[in-house]
Amino acid sequence: MSQAIAGPAPIAVELPTLSLREAWPWALFGLILMLLAVYFVGAEQGATSLISGNAVHEWVHDARHLLGFPCH
């Protein structure tokens, strides 16, 4: 991609980089929320249970099987 010298150069501009320094606390928070979502779809009321009963497991049951998580 080093043909930026010839002619009316196409947009071979270097991309900006985003500062991660001030963003990491809430990015981490977001990742934890996403992990929680993965946990509820993939594992809750299977190997471990945060909520009693079997409703969560059954509600997402087919998605859990088809997404490849161990189910039962």
Binding site: V41, G42, G46, G53, E58, W59, A63
Partner: peptide
């Protein structure tokens, strides 16, 4: 919870439609 019990609380027609959609949308979004 670990038992191989199908469809005791959530009927199968719900599991295979709205349930499946919930799982896919939640996981996809995450």
């Amino acid at each position: 919870a670990a038992a191989a019990d199908e469809g005791t609380e959530v009927p199968r027609p719900v599991q295979s439609t709205v349930g499946l959609a919930t799982g896919m949308l939640v996981l996809g979004t995450a």
